[in-house]
């Protein structure tokens, strides 16, 4: 009977077993092998040992891509998660037109990445872009009062402003996270707030000691999945920069660099080495986050 169930279970999960072998195990092992090879797809892979890795250590483009990726992650993650949590807290209040507001915040997240990038390229355009139309009066007022000479930037033409532009464009899609936070906030048991009310807790105390601890597992989930996502940013910066890596390579991210090596320079071995470094980086960062937050996550079982 037990045996029968085992075979039955295995039969049901067999599609995934094939999936796991072909699309997870095989790529992982062969990526490790290719990363030790010179490989351009057209000719068989040629074993070169650790050369791709030693090359990487002295490849300034790799370091640039790494730094760009980390800077983007460090700026974008806290900003997007903080803003999403703030919006979710507000949306959770008893306010009119709640459903409509939620819909408006969510709508940008379903826009295809290429469309999003194309639209933001236009919004950020130096000549006729909406962003500059909006900030121009502000800058002019500033200039008038303080005698400064501030001009609206040509966002996607300079390295610094291109990075800021990418953050803007990416922040447009935080509605997804807002919805997840909102669902978590709805699950916070009301009796906790009632108890706190009786104890005379202030609003801030309730937020800090009830709301945040109650939704901490969800915050943690958002941080980890956000981290995994942000470290692999590709489509939006790639299209924003017209299929390049941006002015002064400011939009060169690890994924962009892997793509360039694999499909523009056909250095597939080097691309594999880069992808494994990216994998290790994500692994180390996720594990560190788990360590750091293990003590801070409240679980209902305690």
């Amino acid at each position: 009977m037990k045996n029968r169930r085992l075979w039955l279970g295995l039969a049901f999960i067999s599609p995934w077993v094939v999936n796991f072998c072909v699309f997870t195990i095989y790529p992982l092992i062969s990526a490790i092998y290719y990363s030790l090879c010179d490989y351009c797809v057209l000719t068989p892979a040629y074993f070169v040992g650790m050369r791709n890795y030693t090359d990487m250590a002295s490849d300034h483009l790799f370091w640039l891509a790494l730094v760009n990726t980390l800077i983007f992650a460090v700026i974008y993650l806290p900003l997007s998660i903080g803003a999403a949590l703030f919006l979710a807290l507000l949306l959770n209040l008893r306010i009119p037109a709640q459903g409509l507001l939620r819909t408006i915040y969510f709508l940008p997240t379903i826009v295809p990445a290429v469309c999003l990038a194309v639209v933001w390229q236009w919004l950020l355009h130096g000549d006729g872009g909406l962003v500059n139309i909006l900030i121009d009066p502000v800058l002019q007022t500033c200039n008038g009062i303080f005698g400064t000479h501030l001009e609206p930037p040509n966002w996607l033409a300079q390295p610094g402003s291109a990075r800021v532009a990418l953050v803007f464009a990416s922040l447009w899609t935080l509605g997804n996270t807002v919805l997840i936070f909102l669902a978590a906030l709805r699950d916070v048991p009301t009796h906790l707030y009632e108890a706190a009310e009786i104890d005379g807790a202030s609003h801030l105390q309730k937020y800090l000691h009830i709301t945040l601890p109650s939704i901490s597992p969800v915050i943690f989930f958002i941080i980890i999945s956000g981290l995994i996502g942000v470290m692999q940013t590709f489509a939006v910066p790639y299209v924003l920069a017209n299929g390049t890596d941006g002015p002064g390579r400011s939009l060169l991210f690890l994924s962009t660099y892997i793509f360039q090596n694999a499909f523009q320079y056909w250095s597939m071995g080097y691309a594999c080495a880069l992808s494994l470094v990216l994998f290790l980086l994500i692994l180390i960062l996720s594990l560190t986050m788990m360590r750091l937050s293990a003590k801070r996550i409240y679980s209902a079982a305690d």
Binding site: F23, T24, Y26, P27, L28, S30, A31, Y34, Y39, I228, M231, Q232, L254, S255, I258, F259, A262, M268, A271, C272, S275, L276, L278, F279, I282
Partner: peptide, 9 residues
């Protein structure tokens, strides 16, 4: 495991 790892294989 990030998708990037399996691109080349």
């Amino acid at each position: 495991i990030p998708g990037a790892v399996s691109i080349v294989p």
